[in-house]
Design a protein around this nucleic acid. Structure first.
Lengths: 208, 208
DNA sequence: GAGTCGTGCAAGCAAGCGCTTGCAAACGCC
DNA sequence: GGCGTTTGCAAGCGCTTGCTTGCACGACTC
């Protein structure tokens, strides 16, 4: 839009995100970013002025690339639809876990810098929240549960799983795909949307 | 034990944890740590040799201070017992959220440095896991749910709530105490341990 | 052909970093 | 009184950091 496309510019943004994810502000020095992008350090400053502006631009650029996976407008099979959607979401978070962790730590010191990346989880959460409302409205669930808390609970399970799975293997002995199915199954039971055939065998844990 | 007690030493450890939580390795420079502890920078090096050793010692020292809250050996009222326990745990995580975030980001670069702090969530999770097994064994719950996943789910909800509540207020419109009660209620429903009187009104959201 | 634009290169600046050295003062202990 | 331990203070080392300057070279346009 207002910013002219440029190979150099994009290479710098990409390098910034990569190094920033790997080691935060400390690892993402202007010399290293420039080298990673195959560009002279001076060029970096000519494009972005200050390092701070470069990082902000890189965060905005990165956040703009990611779209929120939609959930069905008309829920038919909540179990299958949710498992599919959660696996997608979990996989993405797991791939981005180092960047997410760095952004979380950085958020205290630079709230504005990370605000674009924070919109992503909020949108994903809203998508799930509104889906749960639709599930209830269509009569596929029952009970007096709070949709906001239910959404937060499932998202929280996925999030902490994606963040902690590699660091705490004893906490996550189950394969991630099976664990996700378990989370979804538990949530559906909690909101009174669990079918009988689903409860019996389909979502047992494989590796207990 | 093997390390002699010392006011100076403890002041340095405390200052290290504080500055490290605020801004990671970057903010926790030896000059700043010494100043925060009210001690000369040279004294720091005389005590700990290298900065790396100081940080490791500080992490171990801090992890040793925190004990895991026990859950009842004989579950009587899971709803009340879990809500109390979760509130305690949530409150502690929320207070330590900046330190937790920094450690998570730092864990990629220095896995050994942060391993003592990682034992804490694992122990807490085991405490909940074994409690859920007891709840099932005592006949207070029913169904074929996986206790490990159930524990991870509740812990994940608490964790992501404590981490994200201040950064994403739109995701957490409910007061934390009420949200926690909601999480517990949902989990108990999921594992077939929800009582009727509990479902009716006791755990409604206050601020919808 | 002149001029503009984007880039590379060499050099350098002040500041902060982890860490070291040498010396003096204060303390408790024999 | 002497002696070892602990601390403070001043200074400095080599290094990395963010950032700047000056100059030269190629590509493109008018």
């Amino acid at each position: 839009m207002n910013e002219p496309k440029s190979e150099v510019r994009e290479a710098l943004l990409r390098a910034t995100v990569k190094l920033f994810a790997e080691g935060g502000t400390k690892a993402a020095s202007t010399r290293r970013i420039a080298k990673e992008a195959g560009v002279n350090e001076v060029t970096l400053f000519r494009h972005f002025g200050k390092k701070e502006d470069l990082i902000c631009s890189a965060m905005r650029w990165f956040a703009d690339q990611n779209r929120v996976e939609p959930l069905p407008a008309d829920p038919l099979d909540p179990e299958r639809e949710l498992v599919d959607w959660c696996r997608e979401h979990h996989q993405r978070m797991h791939k981005l876990r180092t960047l997410i962790r760095t952004c979380m730590a950085d958020h205290l010191e630079h709230p504005d810098r990370n605000s674009p990346t924070l919109k992503m989880p909020v949108q994903v959460n809203n998508e799930l929240y509104e889906y749960l409302l639709r599930v209830r409205a269509s009569g596929l669930a029952s009970g007096t549960w709070d949709a906001r808390s239910a959404a937060n609970m499932l998202m929280g399970a996925l999030f902490s799983d994606a963040m902690g799975r590699d660091a705490m293997p004893e906490r996550f002995p189950t394969a991630s795909d099976d664990a996700i199915a378990q989370y979804v199954g538990l949530l559906l039971s909690a909101i009174g949307a669990k079918t009988e055939e689903g409860r019996s065998a389909k979502f047992e844990v494989r590796s207990a």
